[in-house]
Simulated scan of single mutants.
Amino acid sequence: MSERFFIEHPPTAAEVTFDEAESQHLAKVMRANVGDVVVGFDGRGTEYQIELTSIGKKKVIGAIRSQAEVSREASRQLTLAVALPKGDRQRWLVEKCVELGVARLVPLLTKRGVAQPVEKAIERLRRAVIEACKQCERNRLMKVDQGQSLEEVLAARPAASFLMHPSGETLHHDSILPAKEVLAIIGPEGGFTDEEVAEAAEHGCQIVSLGPRILRVETAALAMATLVTAVPGP
């Protein structure tokens, strides 16, 4: 059985009880049988080999046969603070960020934002993180924070912080190489206001561009993720 299954509550003993959604997937979709061995992961970095011992429609139980810390994380921690795009583009953005190894996604509240990160939307994105981790074999969940203002993001910024804007200088690898943690701030479809750009610069952010073309929100986010995670860490 090739699919991976999320363990919401890391086991404290030698037995695992899958939550209702994963249990239903095992029982109804995968048609799992007692004795099947599946791979589970807890979202905190541990991977498990689990032999199924009880199959119910809403409750599947298994015995842990082995476990190991298996890291498939990027060598550099990237936080993306992004003014979310509309609709299904949010889920697509999350899926690709997980695949590329982004450590943390912060829905950014801006003056020209088009999508508000309400609680239900955040929960959908967090579920999308789990599904993407199952597919790409990542064992540590990308964090999805509650919405934050630009001021809040800037208050906790690491030394290597960049705001994406067409007026900025072209971003070079040399700016990323020394950093263990990177923050990239990406604005909404209508762009940042001049005041927001000035605020970021006052807080020490580098104002940078990814080229002469105007990129969509999710394109800019993934281009930055690719640049940061592809460059070997310090």
Rank of each mutant, 00 (worst) to 15 (best):
I214P: 04
G168E: 13
V106T: 10
L109P: 06
L78R: 02
S161C: 10
V37T: 14
T170F: 12
L222F: 07
I61G: 01
R216W: 10
R140S: 06
T229H: 01
H172R: 13
V208T: 12
G168W: 12
I176L: 15
E151W: 02
V94H: 00
C133R: 00
E3K: 13
R44F: 03
V29C: 13
P232G: 09
H25Y: 14
V37E: 15
D194V: 08
A27W: 04
A155L: 07
P117G: 08
L141Y: 05
A21N: 10
N33T: 11
G113Q: 15
T46N: 12
A225K: 11
E137G: 02
V82R: 09
R216H: 11
F6S: 02
V114G: 07
F41C: 00
V34H: 04
P212G: 10
L80D: 01
T170K: 14
R127P: 00
P10R: 10
G191P: 10
H9D: 14
C136M: 03
L163V: 14
H172M: 06
A103C: 03
N139P: 06
K57P: 07
P107K: 01
E169G: 10
R72V: 00
L93Q: 02
I61Q: 15
L125C: 03
A13R: 15
G190A: 13
R65M: 14
Q146D: 15
N33C: 10
A225L: 05
L84A: 07
L108T: 08
E123V: 08
L105P: 00
V208C: 14
S2E: 13
P158I: 10
V60A: 01
V34G: 06
E15K: 10
S23V: 05
I61K: 15
F5D: 02
G204W: 06
P158H: 04
E3P: 09
R124Q: 14
K58P: 04
L171G: 06
K111P: 00
V60M: 04
V231C: 12
R4T: 09
L78N: 10
N33D: 09
L108S: 12
V208G: 12
V208Q: 12
L222P: 01
E123C: 03
I64L: 11
C133E: 01
L183V: 01
A155M: 03
G190R: 10
P188H: 06
K58M: 08
V217I: 15
V102P: 00
A74Q: 03
T170C: 06
A27I: 04
P107H: 08
R44C: 07
T170N: 11
F18S: 04
V34P: 05
F5S: 00
L108A: 12
P85F: 12
R157G: 05
M30N: 04
E189G: 04
L105F: 00
